[in-house]
Amino acid sequence: MCLGVPGKVTELYQANGMKMGKVDFGGVVREACLEYLPDIQIGDYTLIHVGFGISRLDEKEARETLELLQQMDMLSSELPPAGGGS
């Protein structure tokens, strides 16, 4: 239930005074309430919980985190492996 599902916003519209949208979850498209994401645009990725968008993906952060982890990995490959004294 707390597991949000990421998807891509493909449509935006108003219903009952709320910001709503269509979100594509890798092929499955469902309606979601996007009222809590005032800045969200078509093409953005969002995390949906029980039919509500609660966060917008920061693509720059996503790229930078991956780069950082990959660099950390390159650093560790230059170090001798942990052998526990053996």
Binding site: M1, C2, C33, H49, V50, G51, F52
Partner: peptide, 9 residues
């Protein structure tokens, strides 16, 4: 029911 994730919904 739920934690803070479902509370806004």
């Amino acid at each position: 029911i739920g934690f803070e994730t479902t509370a806004p919904a």
